[in-house]
């Protein structure tokens, strides 16, 4: 896979632009957030109650990591589902064929698509996260929460989002995208939301896309703040780094496989 950097940057910009303009992206996040708020209306688990309590017990950094972790438990469902249509769209609109006649490699376009579409889809998620960060900053009377929030989000959420986004692009090369979306949501529910320790699940491995080992190993969290999903796992900083690297490496492998598969399919035409 040869990467052409100016073309990669160009593809990233246009994929970002096209995705962020989609009303579906914003509507999906808005509806999903409202759904989450409605589901967690129990007085003991509201955002306000949880984080005012947590701020009294924990450091600001730990509270921010917990908030990023909580966000990363639910909202990647939207990211994965919304990215699922990006590759089939190129076939549907026939731009794939046109772009094949141009000197930029397919691999470059795919990486541009991955990063551009993923970053655009992450914007609403990040804004929701930032809303919570603003509450934490105002309640803690500490504006440091704002600059701290950025690296926390990058470390806790981004590796998992790259992992999910790569699979959402790769799997839809051979799966009907609505079917992929259904399977992805089922996977997320079983693997992440239905957090039972007695079930076999990727969520308690280093390949956990919700950033479990990261929040434990780097930020020292040992239990989800809401108290609903006791983690019962301990993680070291080394495991946290291994988890981040593994998620990114798996995403790279998925993208390389996608490029190889699409090239093979083209050769078979």
């Amino acid at each position: 896979m040869t990467l052409q950097l100016p073309a990669l940057w160009g593809a990233l910009r246009y994929e970002f632009r096209m995705q962020i303009r989609r009303p579906t992206v914003w509507i999906t996040f808005a509806l999903f957030t409202l759904l989450m708020i409605a589901l967690f209306q129990h007085p003991a688990t509201t955002f306000e109650e949880t984080y005012t309590r947590l701020l009294k017990q924990e450091s600001l950094q730990k509270v921010l990591a917990d908030w990023a972790f909580n966000i990363n438990n639910y909202l990647p469902i939207c990211v994965g589902a919304l990215l699922a249509g990006r590759l089939p769209r190129d076939r549907r609109t026939r731009v794939d064929e046109l772009f094949t006649t141009m000197p930029t490699t397919r691999g470059t376009r795919l990486w541009g698509k991955l990063f551009g579409a993923m970053l655009a889809t992450t914007v609403p998620m990040f804004l929701i996260y930032l809303g919570g960060v603003c509450f934490i900053a105002s309640y803690a009377h500490n504006l440091l929460a704002i600059p701290l929030a950025f690296p926390t989000f990058i470390v806790v959420a981004l590796p998992g989002l790259i992992f999910i986004s790569a699979f959402s692009l790769a799997c839809t090369a051979f799966l009907w995208s609505p079917l992929y979306q259904f399977l992805f949501i089922c996977y997320w529910y079983w693997n992440t939301l239905w957090f039972h320790t007695d079930l076999v699940s990727l969520s308690r491995t280093l390949l956990s896309p919700i950033g479990l080992y990261t929040v434990m190993g780097i930020y020292g969290l040992n239990e989800s703040s809401s108290g609903q999903h006791p983690i019962h796992i301990t993680g070291t900083p080394l495991q946290a780094i291994a988890s981040i690297l593994l998620l990114i490496a798996t995403a790279v492998v998925a993208m390389l496989a996608l490029d190889g598969y699409l090239n093979w399919r083209q050769a078979q035409q």
Partner: peptide, 22 residues
């Protein structure tokens, strides 16, 4: 059958194609 992104303007689409053409 020309493939194009319906949500881009002609100017944007041509600029994008220009990028992909190196």
């Amino acid at each position: 059958e020309l493939g194009m992104y319906p949500d881009l303007s002609a100017r944007e689409f041509l600029d994008y194609v220009g990028i992909l053409k190196g």
